[in-house]
Design a binder for these strands. Structure first.
Lengths: 359, 359
DNA sequence: AATCTTTAGAAAAACGTTTTTCTATAGGAG
DNA sequence: CTCCTATAGAAAAACGTTTTTCTAAAGATT
């Protein structure tokens, strides 16, 4: 392994000149530059990124905190981030909140991962998690740490809008999307529409509840908050349990809007077990459009979320901040468009739209 | 941010003593050690891992190359790796072969990722991929690079047995497992059992074909290599296409063994579309036991693979190598046990065994 | 008692870069 | 023609640790 010294010696220049040529830091005359290039080729030289990080204080790594690396949603966000990172020559350090054997309170776990990433001197962090029951205070603390510990590290929130406390965010319009979903059920003739929600302490769950409420209200449909809304935790199993509860308490329900597809698939199982025909007796719609939704029976109507685009956008914002630490004025917030996907869980004859090459 | 110098000054010792206390490198008297500990606490000192890597040549990061981070199989291996890595205080740098927008030949891509990880000075690499059509020569080249470029970096192969060329490997017994699966179909009364295989150039696909052949042979069942084996690429869509082909060419088939669950689910769809009752007319069994298999209709019989354990084991072997670079004698090979999971795609009344809390 | 060995800890070197500072030389102004 | 300024490139410092080398005192050996 030859280092920059050997290159400098072979090219007959100083090591600072080699560094300047390689990084384009300073003007170097064409003749010298060419000699350097040649020496680099001849010796097969590659900079040692660790040594380079030392003085420059840039690690070339960005950190990602994700809720569940084995899930069907978050990995697609991570892939979007990864695409942009690779384009920019950055590497990713991915941390999985659910990736530890012992189960730890998610907030504690996320904080630990966040600190570990900062300690690793990543150049930026994108975090995306559905931890519930946390306050702005908590995120302000994350922001404070990122800004003061070690170095000024830009951060971007994915899926949760935190622009109001000055954190760049990429998110979706849960209020509108929920109205679209519930509106679709109503359009299909549903008159008693229940909701399987996420944890009530979670921003994305709240938005979707609000959209559900608003839509029922706008259309003059019945809503009993106590019996018609069940609270799950976005897992398949919780969707199952919520659906059982709803069927018990609201036997005449004819439509269910689920706060995500996983819970909808759990709910679907209960409906089948209890002999409720979907969509004839009960219509079901989810949220996220994960790939499983198109292969269950019947395929699930849902709201398509731009997962890849969201990851990419978050990464682009982050790199913009990394490149220009000076213009740190206002937090930017990007709200991505979503769209309704109609399948057989709401419309009996709906055409199949799964993609043979998608999975 | 205070550094080791400040700590040394406050404790009234040399910086080497601080380093020795922190890393346990040398004996330091209890009195000095305590003074150091106190100073560390007082200044809230944390080592800068980048600076530490510089001289020690250990980055505290291990690299992982995975086939598909958005899939239903590989992330579970990665999670196992991550668990052990966290226990050992290491961080993970995950590279996704399918994680780039432009589609690149997988071998080329894997090689690029491998080199990038080495260049990042990771302390070890675990690679797990189902790239087909590569020779031992290719893996020997990976091994050579890992040993000679930059520093001696241990590597572990996951899912593919490469012990014969001196690479530590954790894998499964495809031959035995395929026999188990096909044997189960035969036990259920199938007499014309077809196989949907992975790419013929891939070790894991070959093993499973061999097990399929052997089982049919042992039981005196018919086998026409031309018509009864179809080759997919482990995706859902390819399973769909293979099943179409098999039904066209072998209309009287009564059992299908698929080389993985994803293809089996694609196959299941064709069977449904063509009105073949599963399991009454055709029995179907997959391989891997991914979570989707338990929620499709009917739930899929399959071979349960210890994904988490495999990841953990691979990581343990890697850390063993990292800790003891001297004893580098023979490559170790760990073959993990698997087991049959019977569901309704082969046995009409099989009990449901999905786990409400699993997904 | 003199010499050798061990060892706790300090001092200094090293890791491989980037960045800052310094030094000539050339070009322009007075 | 002298002085000043700009600048290409060299030299040196810096980044924050770990590791190696050195030192002095204590203990063991003859």
């Amino acid at each position: 392994m030859s280092g920059i010294k050997e290159v400098a010696a072979l090219a007959g220049v100083s090591i600072s000149t080699v560094s300047n040529v390689l990084n384009g830091t300073k003007y170097v005359s064409p003749e010298l530059a060419e000699r350097v290039e040649k020496a680099v080729k001849a010796l097969n030289y590659e900079v040692n990124p660790i040594a380079a990080s030392m003085k420059s204080r840039k690690s070339g790594v960005i950190g990602v905190i994700t809720e569940d690396l084995c899930g069907v949603f978050y990995p697609y966000l991570v892939r979007g981030i990864n695409e942009v990172a690779e384009e920019k020559g950055y590497r990713l350090m991915i941390s999985d909140i659910n990736g530890k054997k012992e189960k730890i309170p998610p907030v504690e776990r996320e904080l630990e991962l966040f600190q570990r990433l900062l300690a690793s001197r990543v150049d930026g962090i994108i975090f995306t998690s559905s931890i519930s029951g946390v306050e702005n205070k908590y995120f302000l603390e994350l922001k404070r740490m990122a800004e003061n510990k070690y170095k000024k590290t830009p951060i971007v929130s994915l899926e949760r809008d935190l622009t109001m406390i000055g954190i760049d965010s990429v998110y979706f319009d849960g209020l509108v999307n929920a109205q679209t979903a519930v509106g679709h059920l109503a359009d299909c003739g549903c008159r008693k529409i229940c909701h399987i929600s996420g944890p009530p302490g979670l921003q994305i769950a709240q938005e979707r509840i609000a959209g559900y409420r608003k839509c029922l209200n706008d259309r003059g449909l019945e809503l009993d908050e106590e019996s018609m809304i069940a609270y799950g935790d976005y897992t398949h199993g919780s969707g199952y349990r919520c659906m059982e509860k709803l069927l018990d308490e609201v036997p005449d329900l004819d439509g269910v809007f689920c706060s995500n597809d996983q819970m909808a698939i759990g709910a679907l199982r209960v409906l089948k077990e209890r002999g409720k025909a979907v969509p004839e007796e009960v219509k079901l719609i989810g949220y996220d459009d994960v790939f499983v939704s198109s292969i269950v029976e019947p395929p699930l109507s849902t709201i398509h979320i731009q997962k890849n685009a969201a990851g990419r956008k978050a990464a682009e914002i982050l790199f913009d901040r990394i490149g220009h630490p000076e213009k740190r004025e206002l937090a930017v917030g990007i709200k991505l468009e979503s769209r309704l996907v109609v399948r057989r869980s709401t419309v009996a004859g709906a055409e199949e739209n799964w993609d043979l090459n998608d999975w």
